[in-house]
């Protein structure tokens, strides 16, 4: 079973050279730490910066320089700052190649829910509805089951959705899965020392298993 860092490390392998990528809050933020040094990847933060760098050294935080999670950040050489319309312009026009974000639920059709639990929690969608609606590649980093042990990979989302048929691949502590065009979670890889049965038990939606399922490579 993978920890958060492990999930981030595995997703980092999906990021192509010479690409622009938007990272969501949580596990996705960690992905930046595992991009191979010879890969040219520019990270976008939708509040208005291309070319985000690492967190600042203590004492060097700039209140005018934050990421979409409101964390203090730095920028790298070649960075650019812009307003929110231009930021979502680069997202909606498909210039941002890939979105990696968290989820509360994903359905076997690739529907994503991550912004609201009716009557309990209302945080809002922020930029997530834009990011998943845009014609880019959407990867999800999430825990396979919730705190009560219930699957978050479902036949249909029970929570209000963020986007319909928008997710391509899912990375959890147990597995890598792909959404099949006709619906269903295609099991691509197992986390180290995780069995196919464990993944079956943790997946409520239709799981598609074809042949031997390899263990993840990092």
């Amino acid at each position: 079973m993978l920890d958060k860092e492990g999930i981030a490390k595995r997703i980092a392998r999906e990021v192509s050279d010479n690409s622009y990528v938007n990272l969501g809050i949580g596990i996705p933020t960690l992905v930046a730490n595992y991009i191979p040094p010879d890969h040219h990847v520019v990270f976008q933060t939708e509040n208005g910066l291309l070319g985000t760098g690492p967190f600042p050294w203590e004492g060097e935080e700039d209140p005018d320089l934050i990421n979409a999670g409101k964390q203090t950040i730095t920028f790298l050489p070649g960075a650019s700052s812009f307003d929110s319309a231009m930021s979502f312009g680069m997202i909606h026009s498909g210039k941002v190649h890939m979105t990696i974000l968290g989820a509360m639920e994903v359905s076997e059709h690739g529907d994503l829910a991550n912004w609201k639990i009716p009557g309990k929690m209302v945080k809002g969608m922020g930029g997530a509805m834009d990011l998943v609606a845009a014609s880019n590649k959407t990867l999800v980093a999430m825990q396979h089951v919730n705190k009560s042990g219930e699957s978050k990979l479902l036949p249909e989302c029970t929570l209000p959705i963020t986007g319909r048929r928008c997710v391509q691949k899912i990375f959890t502590e147990l597995a890598v899965l792909e959404i099949a065009p006709e619906g269903g979670f295609i099991l691509l890889e197992r986390a180290p020392s995780v069995s196919v049965d464990q993944i079956k038990n943790a997946t409520k939606g239709r799981l598609i298993i074809k042949g031997e399922i390899p263990e993840m490579i990092f």
């Binding site: 939708e46 307003d83 929110s84 319309a85 930021s87 979502f88 997202i91 909606h92 912004w115 609201k116 209302v122 809002g124 969608m125 922020g126 930029g127 997530a128 509805m129 834009d130």
Partner: peptide, 13 residues
């Protein structure tokens, strides 16, 4: 409260 996507907020401005 009316919650709207961030890009929609920007584009409506």
């Amino acid at each position: 409260v009316e919650l709207i996507p961030q890009g929609t907020l920007a584009f409506r401005c």
